[in-house]
Computed example of a mutant assay.
Amino acid sequence: MSEKQKHASAYWKENVKYLSILLTIWFIVSYGCGILFKDALNEIRLGGFKLGFWFAQQGSIYVFVILIFVYVRIMNKLDKKYGFDE
């Protein structure tokens, strides 16, 4: 395996690691907070709505959008680290 292929393989491996972490966070927020833990979260109110309901309806979407921006920032740093930036 050439040095360039090792470099690209390390880049891809790190990319998949970050992607897995971010998708796990999104899964926990959307499925966990919206479905599994909704009864406990419904004891808390946010803007007049039960927190479990809020996560099921809007919170997971907000978290997903935030995670997109986090992913872009992480990938920009990763591109610079491996020399793939423009």
Rank of each mutant, 00 (worst) to 15 (best):
H7L: 09
K17N: 15
N42G: 09
I68T: 09
F27I: 01
K77F: 02
F55K: 07
K50L: 11
Q57L: 14
L67K: 05
Q57S: 12
I35G: 06
V63K: 01
E43R: 15
V16N: 08
T24N: 12
D85C: 03
H7K: 08
M75E: 03
F84R: 00
L67Q: 03
C33V: 05
G32N: 02
Y71V: 06
I61R: 10
L22V: 14
I74G: 03
W12A: 14
N76G: 13
L36N: 03
K38R: 12
V70R: 06
E14N: 14
A10W: 08
I21A: 11
L23S: 04
K4H: 15
G52S: 07
I68D: 10
I25C: 06
W26C: 02
L36P: 04
A10Y: 10
M75F: 09
I25V: 05
F55N: 03
T24K: 12
F49L: 12
G59L: 05
L23K: 03
I28S: 03
G47T: 09
N76T: 06
R73S: 12
I28L: 00
F53Q: 09
D79F: 04
G48I: 00
F69N: 11
I21H: 10
V29S: 05
A40N: 12
L19H: 13
W26L: 03
V70P: 08
I25L: 07
K17A: 14
Y31R: 05
